[in-house]
């Protein structure tokens, strides 16, 4: 391998079922733009979709967001995500076109197939990164949390190309759109066949959230814990979330007790979130919970126990009765038409 053959930065963009780009794809594009601003490398966005999907809008948005070109991989077999087909399509394109850097937003999809792409192409991969830069030696230096968010590590791949990384949601702002930028897109057909796929999606059971907000993407998260005393009292958490357009989260204790689904669990064996504002309602804040939320930009805690560890990391804490304070907060926000925007 001649490392000098590998040039440019790729961002693998991800589409939802309606052909719209995930926010984290535009955040990954922003990360790409921050690399080496004095001598900008060419930025290529790569899209994978089914033949029937109209990707015109997504391609335009990627171009307006800073992609110098868009490679749109289209195939009947790419209409639905499948690990081996996505691995093959991306790995083949990497081997053919030799990018120096390949980025993707950290989602359940990228964390499913990108490690396989890295294994196949003998590439280094840094997962769930919170910061990227090009170091003095010209290598991509990625910062990523480890040891349950207690530690940060900087990782490089000095002897392999491409240098791959997945970018944690909200680590970068969504890149600004410049509609005057030209759209330069090219449609490619990867060489795929049905027998390559040895897994098959049978069914998707959508999780119904009252506020319709996904935990990972939400700018505001309102989480409830054991201090709510019972599942029937979670309504006040949902009402507060609704009043602010927030997503609902939960501590491990209430998930284990069966009050809330695991999909809402924030913490070591649940999800890691880093919203602009995190409300911890009746959550003591054990280290296993902090692992999943301590990188939030602002933390508000309401808990009756003034010694609860959550207050050690809260920007604003109220020691008091959640049953009085939370409904009052919701009521005050509504009555005074206060809009929380981040």
């Amino acid at each position: 391998m001649n490392m000098n053959d590998y040039k440019g930065i790729w961002v693998i963009a991800e589409l939802n079922r309606n052909g719209e780009l995930y926010d984290v794809s535009l955040e990954a594009l922003e990360a790409a733009k921050t690399l080496n601003p004095s001598a900008p490398a060419e930025i290529t966005a790569v899209l994978l979709s089914g033949t029937g999907m109209d990707t015109t809008n997504a391609e335009a948005m990627l171009s307006h967001a800073g992609a110098d070109q868009v490679l749109s991989l289209k195939h009947d077999l790419l209409g639905q995500y499948q690990v081996e087909l996505f691995t093959k399509a991306v790995a083949d394109l990497i081997e053919e076109r030799k990018p120096s850097i390949v980025l993707m937003g950290a989602t359940s999809t990228s964390r499913d197939f990108m490690p396989r792409v890295a294994a196949r192409t003998r590439a280094g991969i840094a997962p769930d990164c919170t910061h990227l830069e090009i170091n003095a030696d010209g290598h991509l230096e990625a910062t990523r949390p480890m040891f349950g968010e207690n530690m940060l590590a900087s990782v490089i791949s000095p002897n392999h190309r491409p240098q791959m990384a997945t970018i944690r949601g909200k680590a970068y702002a969504k890149t600004a759109l410049d509609t005057s930028r030209a759209v330069n897109s090219q449609t490619l057909t990867p060489a795929l066949s049905p027998e390559m796929a040895r897994t098959k999606l049978l069914e998707t059971m959508k999780s119904e959230t009252k506020t319709g907000k996904k935990l990972e993407e939400a700018e505001i998260v309102v989480s409830g814990g054991r201090g709510l005393k019972g599942p029937e009292n979670f309504g006040m958490v949902e009402s507060l979330a609704e009043a602010m357009g927030a997503a609902v989260g939960a501590s491990r204790a209430v998930v284990d007790a069966g009050w809330r689904p695991h999909a809402e669990q924030v913490g070591q064996t649940g999800k890691t979130v880093s919203p602009q504002i995190y409300f911890a309602i009746g959550i003591s804040g054990a280290i296993q919970h902090q692992v999943g939320m301590s990188s939030s930009k602002m933390i508000i805690a309401i808990n009756k126990d003034g010694d609860a560890p959550i207050f050690e990391i809260a920007d604003f804490g109220i020691v008091g009765d959640v049953f009085q304070i939370v409904p009052l907060l919701t009521k005050t926000l509504k009555e005074q038409n206060l809009v929380v925007t981040v």
């Binding site: 991969i125 530690m151 900087s154 490089i156 791949s157 050690e312």
Partner: peptide, 17 residues
């Protein structure tokens, strides 16, 4: 395929008001 250059303790978030 990767080298960890360094690891450091994440600055602990300070409590506020």
């Amino acid at each position: 395929t990767t080298v960890t250059l360094k690891t450091w303790r994440r600055p602990k978030k300070e409590g506020g008001k």
